[in-house]
Amino acid sequence: MKQIFTILWKDLLVELKSKESLLSMFTFGLLILVIFNFAIEPTPAIKRAITPGLLWVTFLFSGVLGLNRSFALEKENMAIQGMLLAPVDRGLIYFGKFGANLIILLIAEILTLPFFLLFLNMPLFQHFWWIIGIILLGTIGFVAVGTLFSAMATNVKMSEVMLPLLLFPVSTPILLAAVACIRDVIAGEPFATYQNWFFLLVGFDMIFIVVPSLIFEYVVEE
């Protein structure tokens, strides 16, 4: 547990000093929102219809920006070598990186969230804790697969392009489930209408935390 926290803290500290990922993710998220508003010119009805989807498109796209940085930084100064030399289980390194990526993406999402209220009239405060909970679950699943793929993509040519190509098809279930949950929550539906989606999110999260933590060692070993 202590090792996980050390790796997590190291990543967060680097991020807090430079704020590179956070700033770029946040700005990029805003930009997507603005572009969509120009491209669609939403009426109030359209706004209601596109908000859940747009929310997750924004989060996933800016998420990829952050995930791309995650292992690129480790590679630049051969820092990953040092981490691998440490007498730590590789699964724990995965959890450390996963935790750091998760927290950074969550901060970026929370920064972007008010603009959905501003631009799209998203009813943020009526169902605040449900929305936050679903964002948390969706982000966990996405970052869990993303951390694994980021470690892979960093080591091949065209890494910035490779990550979304790997990540988006695989995260289709997360996207659908998270969009459906947010859509029903915002519409004020009772839990029973979207419980299937909710449990799919939870299931995806569990599978894609356990499986990558088991195969992560094959990705980083030399």
């Binding site: 892979m152 599978i207 195969i215």
Partner: peptide, 26 residues
Amino acid sequence: TAKFSAVLGIIGFIDVPLVYLSINWW
């Protein structure tokens, strides 16, 4: 590359039932 593609081969296949389930509900 062999290791990376093996990882994707595993993750991709595990993902397929989830993709089907989610799209079916959708």
